[in-house]
Every structure is written in structure tokens, then in C-alpha cells.
Amino acid sequence: MVRHMSEAALQAIAEPRRREILRLVRDRPHSVNEIAERFDISQQAVSQHLKVLREAGLVTVQPSGQRRLYAIRTEGLESVRELLAELWPARLAELKRVVEDDRC
């Protein structure tokens, strides 16, 4: 499950606008219109990006009157963090080995 979610999350955040959307909704929820105002793309394009982020488990949506507010779902990033934590020690061990080899 973690691998599947991390793959979906990684694919979702691979797109630069989606990363910007995540940064935007990190501090407070925003509506599609509020998000679209920050980009030079259509509201429909923003809605598509939000759909990808939602399906990857990276944002939540809450109805608020006539609007739907999008907020970051930090739990969705946990699978990405776990994947990076799994890969990172191996790279650090390799770096340590190279540095130690260079000293000799």
C-alpha cells in the first residue's frame, strides 16, 4: 500500500504546478477560483490538477457553502517521506564509503 500511494504521490508532485498548488493550500484552504487566480491557466486546468492531487491522497476537499475548499493532506506525503527515508540511508552509506576511500 505504501509503495502504491508513494508512486501516485510522486507522479502527482512531479508536475511543477501541482507542487505550487500544494504550497498554496499548505497554510490555509483555498477554493478552485482562489487557486486559479494564482496561475495563468484555466479554472478547468486547476480543477484537473486538484483531481490528481486528491486521487493521490495529497489534498482534501471540504464543502463550504457554495464553494469547495482544498487543503493539504500531510498524511498523503507520509508515503513519499517513507520512501525517501528508505532510499536516503543507502545513498549516505555510499557517500561515506567514497569519502573514506578518498582519504586512503
Rank of each mutant, 00 (worst) to 15 (best):
R3K: 08
V46H: 07
G65D: 05
R23H: 08
R19W: 02
D27Q: 11
P29A: 14
Q48A: 15
L50A: 07
M5C: 01
A8H: 06
I41D: 11
E94I: 00
A85W: 08
A14S: 15
E7N: 06
K96W: 02
A36S: 15
Q66Y: 09
Q44E: 13
I21P: 01
M5Q: 13
Q43V: 12
S6Y: 12
E55A: 11
Q43R: 15
D27I: 01
S79F: 01
L53S: 04
M1L: 11
Q11N: 09
T74W: 05
L10R: 05
S31P: 06
E7T: 06
R73K: 14
L69P: 03
S79M: 07
E37I: 02
L77K: 02
L87S: 12
Q62T: 15
S6W: 03
E55T: 09
L58A: 06
R28E: 13
V80A: 04
L77V: 04
E82A: 10
S64C: 03
E15A: 10
P89Q: 12
I35Y: 03
D102H: 09
V32I: 14
L69I: 11
Q66F: 03
A8E: 10
L77C: 02
R67Q: 13
R73A: 12
D27H: 11
I72S: 08
S6A: 04
L58F: 09
A71W: 00
E100C: 03
K51H: 14
E7F: 00
A36M: 03
V32K: 12
N33P: 00
G65I: 02
E100T: 14
K51V: 01
I21Q: 05
V59A: 02
L95W: 10
D101R: 13
I21A: 04
A93V: 06
W88Y: 15
V25L: 01
E100W: 03
L10M: 07
N33D: 15
H4F: 12
R67L: 13
R28M: 05
I21G: 01
D40V: 03
E82F: 00
Q44L: 08
M5S: 11
H49E: 15
P16Q: 06
C104K: 11
P63Y: 01
E100I: 10
T74G: 03
P29Q: 09
T74R: 14
